[in-house]
């Protein structure tokens, strides 16, 4: 299992969730991705997509204005 960071700080377009969706193509099932976002909307948008797309949301933490959303590719 590997972990990769998706640095989407300052990304309005395509935005953190789009960056995550693109990054999902580059990792194996079971790998973890940590999305860094300066958009507080990511804290709800990313888990919403993960539920619908049946991937795992491992947690979200805010540090100094940056949301860290941890994700596992489940399929």
């Amino acid at each position: 299992m590997a972990r990769r960071t998706v640095d989407a700080r300052g990304s309005f377009c395509p935005g953190p969730l789009m960056e995550l969706i693109a990054a999902m193509k580059m990792v194996a099932v079971g790998d973890e991705l940590e999305v860094l976002s300066t958009d507080k909307g990511s804290a709800s948008e990313i888990p919403e997509w993960l539920r619908k797309a049946r991937h795992e949301h491992l947690g979200t933490e805010e540090k100094d204005g940056v949301w860290h959303v941890l994700v596992r590719k489940a399929r």
Binding site: F12, C13, P14, G15, L17, M18, I21, G41, E45, E48, W49
Partner: peptide
């Protein structure tokens, strides 16, 4: 559209 609204820019 891939995300939860019709364009990525809110």
């Amino acid at each position: 559209y891939p995300i939860g609204r019709v364009h990525t820019l809110e």
